[in-house]
Design a protein around this nucleic acid. Sequence first.
DNA 1: TTGTATGCGTTATCAG
DNA 2: CTGATAACGCATACAA
Lengths: 338, 338
Amino acid sequence: MPATIKDVARLADCSIKTVSRVVNDEPYVAEETRKKVQAAIDALGYAPNFSARRLVQRKAYMICILLHEAGFYQSAVLSKVMDVGYQHDYDILIQSYFPSHTRSKEKLSALINERRVDGLVITPPCDVDPYLSDLLTRSGVPYVQITPLNRTPDIPYVTGDDYQGAYLMTERLIMLGHWRIAFLSGPRNHRTSIDRLYGYKAALEVYHLPFAADLVLESLYNFDGGYNAAKLAMELDDPPTAIFGGNDEAAIGALYALREMGYMVPTEVSVCGFDNLAQSNQVWPGLSTVDHPVEAIVERATGMLMAILAGEIPENQQVVLPCRLVMRGSTGAPPPGR
Amino acid sequence: MPATIKDVARLADCSIKTVSRVVNDEPYVAEETRKKVQAAIDALGYAPNFSARRLVQRKAYMICILLHEAGFYQSAVLSKVMDVGYQHDYDILIQSYFPSHTRSKEKLSALINERRVDGLVITPPCDVDPYLSDLLTRSGVPYVQITPLNRTPDIPYVTGDDYQGAYLMTERLIMLGHWRIAFLSGPRNHRTSIDRLYGYKAALEVYHLPFAADLVLESLYNFDGGYNAAKLAMELDDPPTAIFGGNDEAAIGALYALREMGYMVPTEVSVCGFDNLAQSNQVWPGLSTVDHPVEAIVERATGMLMAILAGEIPENQQVVLPCRLVMRGSTGAPPPGR
DNA sequence: TTGTATGCGTTATCAG
DNA sequence: CTGATAACGCATACAA
């Protein structure tokens, strides 16, 4: 049985309140008393019971990070979230959430209603679930979205500048000499996906290149989708000289498809992606991509959540961070004849 | 202010004990009373305060999963842990742990001493840190290791059969006609790494192939290590016709290096790995590998922890699960001349 | 079948 | 500076 505050008080011959003061570094305690108490604490190996503290302070000292499934992106998010949890005195609870999964809903609403967490960080694609946002706003728990698929006024979020990133990359491809550039798109009802598509379109327009609808292919933003889309693209009458994957996973699928079809990258076809996942650098010949600053996003988002939990009201609750190009071996000039 | 058990009792016109009975599905409560209480609960939107319950029951209802860093492997682990956590009524806390990092140690010992978690799941390479194991055993918190780098008697763990997996793969390579097989090894002081090396050696021996020390190269079990090791291997006077990466990351690095050097895989050189990470299937031409059953391991381990927490004593606390081959495009017969 | 009283280990109040 | 005492919200013997 671990020692309690009473045991310490008895040993140090003082009241429990005094012990409490020492433990919490409160002022108004004589240096001598403090030493005496500290000695008792050490002797007994005392550590405060967190549940008791939580109860009386009506705080869980815990934030929840909501994940849909474990993937490459999620793992990047997690590594940073853990870092941030260190710095503040919050523990981090992970919870999976699958929309339209009854048990999942129950679990989450229990989590919130039973006040087991003080706030949440929402990762995509959880933000698009209406049940969830309803639950969240109704309960009044503070939360911040990371890279939301859709943005909502009044809801704090931190994300990357999808439009700008896609514009930059498209522009770069154009500079390299490409004018038939395929774009592997994601879900049409997601802001993130739409923004990237618009960035692509905008660059074409600025450089007076025609927009061809058949060069925009649905990829679902995953490996298989990118694989299939790339195959379709190359079977067009006038195939593209460059394939811009709306995200890295799709681009890596495209790379695989091209390899399978016997195309050389980048000499025959250029490929690039978006996100800068760790694996994009481990796939031959190195995927050129747009760096989506996950780490910075997570850091900013959790920081914002902490601030809100501390009662502050951040002046800017809707943050969009710039993206930057990361050019590697998968892009180059189009073949001479084109 | 959320409703408490008292509010419900008042509204339902009964004692708090009766409410408690209804909430916890205890017997001995008249059907009529139950309905009345349930109605009050719904009306008030009552949910029990978890901190209070934790305090009085002296249980945290929480398990901690300890990670060193977030990667592909970790994210697979997490996803399964979340699944299992669902089924039992435990919340899952993630905590990063970096050996020899003071703050990290403090954080973790506070977590344990303040009884914020009932048990832990330890992932590699955390298990090799002496401070950690000391802390753990001294505090008496139950824990289970996943794929420990080193095994310790009396400490519950679940892992894959590294020796058997490596044996199987080496045997397969031999069957394909290879006899100069390089092995990319990992840290020499880790059981997992040693077992894989031994499995490789054993297969060579059984099939009467000479063991060549220069074909065992240190890879650190990561991409860069595999990359460098593969380059060294191919610069040998008598280069290998197959490279067996001790894990997938190293194998993927090797694949990249070979590609860079202009070797064709698998026609000139075969490559295979160990782990069956998700990305091993996304890299051209598909990495042949040994499936390390992460999901099953995690499921078994978490289940074991739950059982221990429930007071049971699993008869078998040291579980080794079999591995199986997953052959893909990166392996084939050696070139005719060899 | 139901209710009462007590305690879990803290922090917070307010008087010394 | 210090300490007695009251919450916090729930579970749990023990009665009724």
